[in-house]
Simulated scan of single mutants.
Amino acid sequence: MALAGIGADLEGVHAVSAALEAGRVTRIVVEHSRQGELDHLLRRARASGVTVDTIDDVRPLARTGAPQGIVAEATPIPPLGLDELLNQTPDPAALVVFDHLTDPRNVGAIARTAWAAGVGGLVVSGRRSAPLGATAFKAAAGALENLRISEISSVADAIEHLRRREVWTVGLAGDAETTLYDTKLFTEPVAIVIGAEGKGLSRLAAERCDQLVSIPMAPGPESLNASVAAALAMYELARARGWVT
């Protein structure tokens, strides 16, 4: 299913505040008991013409179990086409491709790290993937307001398109012989491909990546959480480019 827009429903203080800063929020519903604590945010909202309603409990309106006493409605963010994303991304490109991740909390956590590590954008599939909804935006804590996001219908086709645009693709795979710390591609235009929780990279995505890399681990564990593996890869990219020391 195509993403007509993302981030229309929000909850949690950081997600609502970031969307308010971006000028997207149209309505806020806040619990009576949180008004004092959130007074600064609510003043900003009212000054921007946002409708603010108060009720006893916002949980019936929320998608997650801990909305922090505040939910909001917002104008959706329209996703970019892949070429639009590449044209807007500083050179050399640094992207992250989601290969059908299904946990929106992982999606949000990866987005939060991507923003911190200097990644230029995210490439997400509109099918068989976690929705970029309230849960992902809450976990991202504002990052999804600050990252370029492209929607694609096929991860394998997107990898081929990236190759035609001279962007290398590096997939994370537990059985790869080359390690994350040995790749020479992170100083080039590159997209890191993150596989689904449990399953890892899909067969077609793995076959089409320019290089597969693994993350060295002590004996015993079979794999890392997708968001942890992605964080290690993104910060190794940032280190290779001299963005962090």
Rank of each mutant, 00 (worst) to 15 (best):
V50D: 05
T51A: 13
T51L: 08
H100Y: 12
E37R: 15
L38R: 04
L42H: 04
G69K: 12
G69W: 02
T54S: 15
A72P: 00
H32C: 03
H100A: 11
P67N: 00
P79A: 01
L42T: 12
A72F: 03
R46Y: 05
P60S: 01
Q35Y: 10
V52R: 08
Q88E: 13
H40V: 13
G81S: 08
G49I: 08
A66V: 09
E73Y: 02
I55H: 00
V52D: 02
L85I: 01
S48Y: 03
R63N: 06
E37A: 15
A94N: 12
F98D: 08
L86M: 13
A66R: 15
L41G: 04
D39S: 15
T51N: 01
V96T: 06
L82P: 02
T64P: 12
F98C: 11
P60G: 04
Q35W: 12
S48L: 07
H100M: 08
R46N: 06
G69V: 07
T75L: 07
L86Y: 00
G49F: 06
S33T: 11
I77F: 10
V71G: 03
P78M: 00
A47H: 12
A62Q: 03
P92S: 09
A74D: 11
L42P: 03
E37H: 12
L86H: 03
V50N: 03
D53E: 14
L85M: 04
T51E: 12
L86D: 02
L42F: 11
P78Q: 01
F98V: 02
P90M: 14
T54W: 11
G49K: 06
I55Q: 11
V58G: 02
G69P: 05
V97I: 15
T64E: 07
A94T: 15
A47N: 10
L42K: 11
G49H: 09
H32K: 13
A47K: 14
L61P: 08
T51D: 10
G65N: 09
R46H: 08
R46T: 09
R43C: 03
H40S: 15
Q88G: 10
T64V: 06
A45L: 12
P76K: 06
L41A: 07
L42E: 06
R43F: 10
D53G: 07
D39T: 13
Q68H: 13
